[in-house]
Structure formats: C-alpha cells, structure tokens
C-alpha cells in the first residue's frame, strides 16, 4: 500500500525528516508516536503534499504511483486522506458544497459522472450518523464556529464520505474529551477493512486503547528508531521516550 524509503524533508533551512523508512500493508493500522518535534506532523504534511515542506531525498510509493510527484488534490484522488491536527475554518463555504466538490473531484478522477443529489444526501446521512454529526453542523460553513471535538468529528465524517485507501490521522485525539474520543474512534473503527490502511499519529497512548494498532513506531530525530506491537505504546506510556 505505502512504501516510504529514506525520506528526507525540510521546512525552510531546517531538516526535519532524516531518512525515514516505513511500509504499510493493506488493512494495517500503524501508530506513530514520538516526542514533540520528532517530525510526526511533518511526515503527515509531506505525505499529503503541503507546500511548506521540501522533500530533499527519498521516495514514496503509494499503491504503485509516485506519491511525491503529485500535487495535494491528486494525492487525495488517488486515495490518500489526511485528518488535520488543526482543521481549517473556511467562512462562506458550506460543509455540503465543500463535500460535494470533493466527492465529485474524486469521481471525475475515477472517470465517474457527478454524484446524483439524492445519492449524495443519502451518503451524507450515513456518514454523519457514524460520528454523530448533526444537521446543524453539516449545513454550516466549513468548521466555522465548531468546537474542537466537532472539528475532529467533521474530519472523520469527511473521511467516511471519501472512502480513502490510506488515512493519516494527525493527532486526531489531541484536545478531545473522552466522549469525543470515543465517537471519533468508533468512526475510525467502523471504517477499518482489509483493504484500507491507517497511519495514526499521536502523542498519547490513550487513543490506542480505542483504535488498536497492528504496529507501533517511535519517531525520533526524523526517523523511526523503534518498532513494535501495540504493547510498545504501553511501555512508552510508563517509561517515556528517554530509554529508547
């Protein structure tokens, strides 16, 4: 599904990723943990095509295509989804128009006609109920005036609408209370399948009680320094990162 080889990236003059290697197979859930400043969010940004980062070396193969060669829109259309750590507020653009444009952008890429109005609404209904996103929020401007929890639920709602091959969740749990965390995790778990993979970036082990990973990686100094099973997360929780 995803093969990252020797990835180097910098923001401005600062090199943040320094030879990162990672392989994610279909249906797998990989958690990436690590101290602040280790490069977790940079990895999410580089994968999704944020322009502020420059890739200086390495290669990313995404289901047979060169991911780094595409712009952000095409990466999304190839099936990559990023759940933002800080979802952006866009006044004046309604959540529904936004999603319709997104769904149709993806459909056009796949050679499909724009979605029918009734089909779209049906899909919205299903996906919104998955994360308990009520109608009020669906009809408002994108993320405008949403609480932190509502924003994160909106991210998972969008993920459900777009049915990606690979979803990168960038600290989706940060700032969430336990109820919101439960709702968000339920949404993610409902979408787990044998052909959909997840990279779950988190600072806290707590999330991994809800979304149980197949692999846990520790990112430090711009590369993965340790890989284990889900028990590694617990170990990190008790011992911190210093022992690695």
């Amino acid at each position: 599904m995803l093969k990252i080889k020797n990835l180097h990236a910098k923001a401005g003059e600062t090199e943040i990723l320094r030879g990162l290697n990672l392989e994610v197979g279909p249906g797998e859930v990989h958690a990436i943990m690590g101290p602040n400043g280790s490069g977790k969010s940079t990895l999410a940004s580089v994968l999704s095509g944020r322009e502020a980062y420059e890739v200086t070396d390495g290669f990313v193969d995404f289901d047979g295509v060169d991911l780094l060669d595409m712009d952000a829109s095409d990466r999304a259309r190839e099936g990559l989804f990023l759940a933002f750590q800080y979802p952006v507020e866009i006044p004046g653009v309604s959540n529904m128009n936004f999603m319709k444009a997104a769904v149709n952008g993806n459909r056009a890429h796949a050679g499909l006609d724009p979605i029918k109005g009734t089909d779209f609404l049906q899909k919205v209904k299903e996906c919104a109920s998955l994360v308990e996103l009520d109608g009020r929020l669906r009809d408002r401007s994108v993320n405008e005036g949403f609480s932190g929890g509502e924003k994160k639920r909106n991210e998972i709602f969008q993920m459900a609408m777009l049915q990606p091959k690979l979803a990168v969740l960038d600290e989706t749990d940060s700032g969430l209370d336990i109820d919101a965390l439960r709702v968000v995790s339920q949404g993610v778990n409902a979408m787990r399948s044998s052909d959909r993979s997840f990279i779950v970036i988190t600072h806290y082990q707590r999330l991994l009680d809800y979304i149980v990973p197949d692999f846990v990686h520790v990112l430090s100094g711009g590369k993965i320094v340790k890989t284990g099973g889900k028990e590694l997360a617990l170990e990190l929780e008790t011992k911190g990162y210093d022992w690695i």
Binding site: S48, G49, R50, E51, D71, A72, S73, R75, A76, R77, F81, L82, F84, P87, V88, I90, P91, G92, V93, N97, F98, M99, A101, A102, G105, N106, H109, S141, V142, Q158, L162
Partner: peptide
C-alpha cells in the same frame, strides 16, 4: 489563504475549483 486552499485540495478538489470556492465565499459575503 494557503491553509484553506490546502485543506480543500487535500480532499481532492482541484486548485482552480478550490480557489473558485474561496473567491465565491469571499465576495459572496
């Protein structure tokens, strides 16, 4: 707004369409 543009693009909306959405919202106000 680069962040807004990136957000829209990260959902599979093309650059031109993403800009159009932002423009429409901006003057639509």
């Amino acid at each position: 707004d680069k962040e807004a543009l990136f957000y829209l693009k990260s959902r599979g909306i093309g650059t031109d369409e993403a800009k159009a959405l932002l423009v429409k919202a901006y003057v639509g106000d």
